[in-house]
């Protein structure tokens, strides 16, 4: 028991861990807000596409020695907007959803391949790539934490300003369109939320695992809440809890932190699914 407490003290004393917990908290805010919107608007696949296409941005940054974060952000925004426009065009032409899914899939794979090719062609390729695939929450530099604060404030500000429009879109896109709301622009705004969150989360859990943190906390929170904003807050809290539990798990088992966080999240999700009464 003493050994355990000592070990936990050591964990909290570790500067890595303090940064990691802070990063978990900041990621939780973004995941709560964006995750609920992604889930309600059935954008999970698009979010996955945006996350992987972001890899192309990482490749560009490596190849041309550009700053990674802005480069990834721009690339991810562009790819996500392109996917959203394809979805909107398909919908207005009355296409079935699978044609749009195929287009997202192509962008998903294409963006990733583009990134890998550029990284392989980069002079002095360093092998830091795994950090972008699986995240490096233990080595988040202070500058990135500041960046995450900025992203969170931006997301919360956008949510506050467009709250009723986004609410209407998420509840019933068709009815919102009938009332004359600018659903296309609001849909594109949602995609901006996705891209911002994805780029921010790449540092924490990596792009492979972005989907889990966007969907699992939100889908758990939805079962407990009757209103949108409380469910966002609860989803954020779940994200934070998964990060903390995952980090503790990783500390004691020496399993990599990003994977640990997701293992915890998936385990809780499965448990909740099994325990929940069938609806």
């Amino acid at each position: 028991m003493d050994a355990l407490i000592l070990s936990l003290e050591a964990l909290l004393a570790s500067p890595f861990m303090r940064h990691a917990l802070l990063a978990g908290l900041l990621a939780g805010i973004a995941c709560g807000v964006t995750g609920v919107l992604v889930l309600q608007n059935r954008l999970t696949f698009l979010a996955g596409g945006a996350a992987h296409a972001a890899y192309g941005g990482v490749g560009l940054a490596f190849y041309f020695s550009l700053p990674v974060l802005p480069c990834t952000l721009l690339f991810s925004l562009g790819a996500a907007a392109l996917m959203a426009l394809l979805v909107l065009r398909g919908e207005s032409e009355g296409q079935r959803g699978d044609a749009q899914d195929a287009a997202i899939g192509a962008l998903w794979a294409g963006g990733t391949a583009f990134g890998i090719i550029l990284i392989e062609l980069s002079p002095g390729y360093s092998g830091d790539l795994m950090g972008y695939l699986f995240g490096s929450i233990l080595t988040v530099p202070t500058a990135d934490l500041v960046g995450m604060v900025f992203f969170d404030l931006l997301l919360l500000g956008l949510l506050f300003f467009f709250r009723q429009g986004l609410w209407a879109l998420s509840l019933d896109k068709e009815f919102a369109a009938v009332r004359g709301l600018p659903v296309r622009r609001l849909y594109l705004l949602l995609v901006v939320f996705v891209a911002l969150t994805v780029v921010m989360l790449i540092r924490v859990v990596g792009l492979i695992l972005v989907l889990a943190l966007l969907t699992i906390p939100a889908s758990l929170a939805r079962t407990f809440c009757r209103s949108l904003y409380p469910s966002m807050a609860l989803a954020g809290l779940f994200s934070l809890l998964f990060c903390v539990a995952g980090l503790v798990f990783s500390w004691f088992t020496d399993i990599s932190s990003g994977a640990s966080i997701i293992v915890v999240a998936v385990a809780v999700y499965l448990l909740a699914r099994v325990m929940a009464p069938a609806r």
Partner: peptide
């Protein structure tokens, strides 16, 4: 979306939505 976390009253109120610069 039937799973959307909202109350019946909240959904009903949304019926009066009007477009504006903030989306609605």
């Amino acid at each position: 979306s039937p799973d959307f976390p909202a109350t019946v009253l909240e959904m009903t109120l949304m019926g009066a939505a009007e477009p504006c610069a903030r989306g609605g």
